[in-house]
């Protein structure tokens, strides 16, 4: 249908146009807080030291320039991908982040998988057995999961499954005896398969399981509530009753009509889900020594590595915006009504 495709294209363009101001607002906020806020960020970060080191850092960061010069310079650097050098590692922040991004992607994708699976299960059980014991239990489980501090949950998972049962290692992405597979995607699970190192693959998966469960199950609590609320509405929808009246089998009515329609608002809320996921990833990576961007942020905080923190935050923000645009476009593709 050319008409449908054209409307989808128009929607994508419109959505991208809206993204511009949003990115600018976020970048301005980060700039404001990390550079222009009253007080002296370098002093705050280096503590009481204000000797030649602080002075040279200020000069290196251009903090003696007028604010608008700093702002324009800041934006220019972001769009050319230059985020300065980490004070601690002296590497380019952009390179540091590029190196760590695949780890974060691997973790978040795996967690999302866990979250969708467990969340849908809980939510569907709840909605189809409304107000019965199964519903009450599922809702309770979902509420507790979503309200569990991720870092605590991760530590307890380590205690139970790594320390007590010794099923998994308690941190890192790969055991020391395995060589890191040649980089193709940077995702160890995929790279090891590409390289044909099957035992490395098993080891990478084993390392991924605990952090992905930690982050995924917490997010599943959020998902479950969303799925339940929307299922309750779609199960009562007129088209569901109409489908029943046409003799469609209950399972087909459930999956093809009720569940599918309930997924529309759920996937619309994906942007919010990703925000929670990205917040959780910072804590999960910190607990499991998972060398991704979240752990990079954690290390930057502990080391008071200011350019690294700023760079990581900016990249994180850009990834978020990029994902939310992708999600919206995906939704427009699923739900024909959005495009109009």
């Amino acid at each position: 249908m050319p008409r449908t495709q054209a409307s989808l294209r128009a929607y994508v363009v419109q959505r991208l146009l809206l993204t511009g101001p949003m990115v600018l607002i976020l970048l301005t906020l980060v700039f404001y807080f990390l550079r222009a806020a009253p007080g002296d960020p370098v002093g705050a970060i280096l503590g009481e030291h204000s000797g030649p080191l602080a002075d040279s850092i200020r000069r290196q960061l251009g903090l003696y320039d007028p604010l608008y010069v700093q702002y324009v310079d800041y934006l220019r650097r972001i769009f050319t991908g230059d985020m300065g050098n980490s004070i601690i590692t002296q590497h380019s922040v952009a390179a540091d982040i590029a190196q760590r991004l695949p780890a974060t992607i691997e973790l978040t994708v795996a967690s999302m998988f866990v979250a969708v699976l467990a969340g849908m299960l809980l939510g569907v059980v709840s909605a189809t057995r409304r107000d019965r014991p199964a519903d009450v239990i599922s809702r309770l489980v979902a509420a507790v999961l979503y309200n569990t501090p991720i870092f605590w949950f991760g530590i307890i998972m380590q205690l139970v499954f790594a320390v007590q049962f010794r099923w998994f290692d308690s941190g890192g992405r790969l055991s020391a005896q395995f060589a890191i597979p040649p980089r193709v995607t940077g995702l160890y699970t995929i790279d090891s398969l590409v390289a044909g190192h099957f035992r490395t693959f098993i080891d990478a998966v084993a390392h991924l399981i605990l952090p992905a469960l930690t982050l995924g199950l917490v997010l599943a609590g959020f998902f479950a509530r969303l799925v339940r609320a929307n299922m309750l509405q779609s199960l009562q929808a007129d088209y569901v009753e109409a489908a029943r009246a046409r003799g469609i089998r209950p399972l087909d009515v459930f999956y093809r009509h009720a569940l599918k329609n309930a997924m529309v608002p759920v996937s619309t809320a994906m942007g919010l889900t990703f925000a929670i996921l990205m917040s959780g990833a910072i804590l999960t990576e910190s607990v499991f020594s998972w060398e991704g961007i979240g752990r990079y942020i954690f290390t930057a905080i502990s080391n008071r590595d200011y350019p690294a923190l700023q760079g990581a935050v900016v990249y994180y923000a850009l990834i978020m915006v990029f994902l939310s645009v992708l999600i919206d476009i995906f939704n427009a593709w699923i739900d024909p009504r959005i495009r109009y």
Binding site: M22, V30, L272, A275, S279, I301, L309, A317
Partner: peptide, 11 residues
């Protein structure tokens, strides 16, 4: 729309 914890970290 921004991850709450990240925002909190920055501030």
């Amino acid at each position: 729309a921004f991850p709450g914890l990240l925002l909190a970290i920055v501030v």
